[in-house]
Design a protein around this nucleic acid. Structure first.
Lengths: 173, 173
DNA sequence: GACAATCAGGACTGCTTCGGTCCACTTAGC
DNA sequence: GCTAAGTGGACCGAAGCAGTCCTGATTGTC
């Protein structure tokens, strides 16, 4: 299906929101944001935001600060984060098939499997394609001007949190 | 993630097998093969082969002939079939997210969704990457000679060896 | 020092999707 | 007419994912 998980979509929203609140000139500097705060401003359920941020933190895309007045902040600028990094942080290594992503233990027949390596050129092509696109590209990509409401930061969804009670997320689906 | 379905993997095996049995000079000409025959020679369960071939036939990658002495044969040469066509035939349109693949009805919040169009550059990049790789590339790609044993099929790693008669793999030729 | 706010890590559950199978029907050659 | 083969659809079990919840650790504030 070639479909990425919803969490990856959420991660993009969260990261763009993180950058949007900080402003490009403050990226990585100030404006630590909490996961409840991001959840409120994006409409994504709070536990889900926390889950995404934990994964992003583990991959070094954001830094976390525990305790009171803690929170998360971007580690790099949006134009320094290829979408491949986000996908890898949430979904793991980018590979179309289980038996070619480098984990030798997943396929017990790997030693004999003639398909081994066959998907490699496809995987490589996709990996390089995803490495060429950054979050900054996605931030400005193909969003009709009508949807760029001036009342919000560029990154935040134009949806008021109340408009997303459940189910219909600002992202895919 | 970013994983494609097993059926797509099977489809590649079946198509390569179809071409392999025909030989490059006979592509699209002779050697109509039945789905039971392909199942026997690849080790993929027969109903699954039939399912894959049905999809491929519907997409025009293979032509079918009904009735006794019927079967399937390749419609194009392997080097004329981009892997994107195979994926599209089995899994549908290539898109990372549900709401950007052109089906406007899938996301009820689409009209307000700021993510609309955001994944477009990513989708385009992947689509073009998959269009540049043909089945012929996969047929010869990166398979160490040591692994070119005729004893195993590719996409059915979990199958017991007994289900894999002999001399089945087209890649071994 | 107590308390509150926040992240960290894991376990759990319901749902959706996928892989695989089966059946009845149609088509076509012998 | 019989047989072999594709066509179309429905069905079921398994696996993975989305989302939630709980407990513990950390840190700033009063």
């Amino acid at each position: 299906m070639l479909r990425l998980s919803k969490l990856t979509d959420y991660a993009v929203v969260v990261l763009v929101r993180l950058a949007g609140a900080q402003g490009p000139h403050l990226a990585g500097q100030a404006s630590v944001q909490t996961s409840p705060g991001i959840a409120a401003s994006t409409g994504i359920p709070e536990p889900t935001v926390a889950k995404v941020l934990k994964s992003l933190s583990g991959s070094g895309l954001v830094t976390s600060q525990r305790g009171a007045r803690g929170g998360y902040r971007l580690q790099r600028r949006l134009d320094e984060i290829p979408i491949a990094d986000v996908i890898a942080a949430i979904d793991g290594p980018i590979a179309l098939t289980a038996c070619v992503d480098g984990s030798a233990s997943e396929c017990e027949a790997q030693a004999l499997c003639p398909m081994r390596g066959r998907w490699d050129p496809v995987n490589d092509a996709i990996r390089s394609a995803l490495n060429r696109i950054t979050l900054a590209d996605m931030q400005v990509a193909a969003i009709p001007p009508a949807f760029r409401t001036p009342t919000r930061t560029t990154a935040a969804p134009a949806l008021p949190p109340a408009a997303l009670p459940s189910g219909n997320m600002p992202a895919a689906e």
